[in-house]
Design a protein around this nucleic acid. Structure first.
Lengths: 307, 307
DNA sequence: GATGCTTACGATACCCGTAAAGATA
DNA sequence: TATCTTTACGGGTATCGTAAGCATC
């Protein structure tokens, strides 16, 4: 048994059992991949892959049992590598943060610039993605930290921590009649066409639930992926907008008014997630501490320890 | 990085950083061991071992961080191997049970013979040892199951399960005056010289605590490692014995009487332990089920899952 | 016929062990 | 001096990639 064989097992599952792709992903030859699999199966005395003739179709039962162990070993090799980097180049390296638009645009900038000042030699990669992709990136190791509002909590392999509470607010063009309605009500909102987030983004599910609970069916005329697009179309008069309150800035958005809606929508909680079992660089913990002073390295470590 | 390097790191720590011994343990040459260490340190970019000149003295800080991961990888290699065996030879293999004298002599025989009938092709190795050695054998992987009364629960790497409650009893030569004392009292026992277990064995600590709580200082004239030796010397008239009640059999011990002492000593609990994170063979779970029908595979698995 | 897996074979690199040299107690 | 580690070097082996053969779709 050797590491190449383990890598091949892992990649084979990832690439739908297409060994040609696997060879490409590992920059090696198909023949080598094929032989490695055969050798390992021979050494263990069991077939790991279901075959139809020469094609691989899936894992056998022993293969399914093996897979989680193989994956743990692969992450452990990366952990070992990371410990090496950690000590050989304390303040150098790379940190990849997978996050949604809202966080990247409105919350992270001060944290990022602070981090860059503290760790000028660390390459900071921001990867904007939707919550599902963020979870996938954490799981496959391509991201160190994930930040999102929608459920990162579902996956047991991830440890997630709340770090920011925020509310939805309603934005309207300056002088819009809705601005005169005080206090704002759901019924009043539902009278106008609405522009808001796409499903599975930035608390959209919470918006839907709130209207459903009030037995209202709002007229959603546009679903966007980010607050900036929503603001643009609200300014054009397409309708009123429901966005994160933190995305509104009276100086930058002179054509819009933000109407408080704390009493209408429950607050949302954005979470930070990391992969359990992954050894993190020191500066990764520092980044998380910058996001929330409660999330000290000790707290994050103990939260990630279970399972 | 390769497996041989990881094995070498692990063995080096085990053998007090003597590379000559390590080479012996892995049947290879010192030079190879030395080079592997150097190569790995070079690859990671950090020194893993503290050195004084050419001698290795201990782990550096990165080495200490690395060690648990290396050990997990080594147990994972064994886990993979075990999965192979599990499926290629379902009912063949080896099971090693580390246990104390009392269990081996009085509790395990029926279980062992039943297991041998069910799994005739499994080589069953019984290894008699003291509780500390039992824990060590589980930790280093040389035993599958450990059984003992004294604390196996202390080590977080081990998962232990209670499976047998038992009481201490007093044995006396037939016709001994103590047999007339009913109910038996601690004071009455303390009047006679006592033969019992060595410290750290078969609930000896419980015996001591019981007398201490009653402010008695019993005259312990002999400390033995097992009940059979105690019985022998009680029969010779050296004193009265305090042993596990399960070690007395009126048919086999015609010269002795067992006096009930349930009301004097708290019951002891014998425990079964396995190593967390170790993949167990099917028949290992079957063996545990034979010991206690409550300890089903599902229960044991979930109990071993934490941490 | 196109794609995908396996087998055969030659080149390369890696790992191992012997032997000699250097360091430590 | 005896023990232990490192360095140097040669032999063997395993791994890799090319190329050809063969099965599946």
């Amino acid at each position: 048994m050797n590491f190449q064989q383990l890598r091949i097992i892992g990649e084979t599952v990832k690439h739908n059992f297409n060994l040609t792709e696997v060879a490409g992903a590992l920059n090696t030859s198909q023949s080598g991949v094929s032989k490695h699999i055969k050798d390992l199966e021979e050494e263990l005395g069991v077939a790991l892959f279901e075959r139809k003739g020469k094609r691989l179709l899936g894992l056998t039962e022993p293969g399914r049992e093996l897979l989680p162990i193989v994956e743990r070993m692969l992450t452990d090799t990366r952990n070992i590598k990371r410990i090496g980097e950690q000590f050989s180049q304390r303040d150098e390296g790379e940190i990849c943060i997978a996050t949604t638009h809202t966080q990247a645009r409105y919350v992270l900038p001060p944290v990022v610039s602070r981090f860059r000042r503290d760790y000028p030699k660390v390459r900071l990669v921001l990867h904007q993605a939707n919550p599902r992709e963020i979870a996938a990136m954490l799981l496959d190791g391509s991201a160190d930290i994930g930040i999102a509002t929608e459920t990162l909590a579902a996956e047991p392999q991830l440890a997630s921590f709340p770090y920011l509470r925020w509310n939805h607010g309603v934005i309207v063009p300056k002088g819009h009649p809705l601005a005169g309605v005080t206090p704002l009500t759901l019924d009043a909102i539902a009278d106008y066409p609405i522009v808001t987030y796409d499903t599975a983004f930035t608390g959209r599910s919470r918006i839907d639930k709130t209207f459903a609970a009030a037995e209202l069916s709002p007229d959603i005329v546009m679903e966007a992926l980010d607050s900036d697009v929503i603001k643009t179309y609200v300014e054009l008069g397409l309708g009123i907008g429901i966005i994160t309150a933190i995305a509104y800035d009276c100086a930058r958005d002179p054509g819009l008014d933000l109407l408080d809606a704390c009493h209408l929508f429950e607050p949302s909680v954005s979470r930070i997630a990391i992969r359990r079992g992954r050894t993190q660089r020191d500066f990764t913990y520092r980044f998380i501490e910058l996001l929330s002073r409660d999330l000290t390295e000790a707290n994050v470590r103990s939260g990630a320890a279970e399972s």
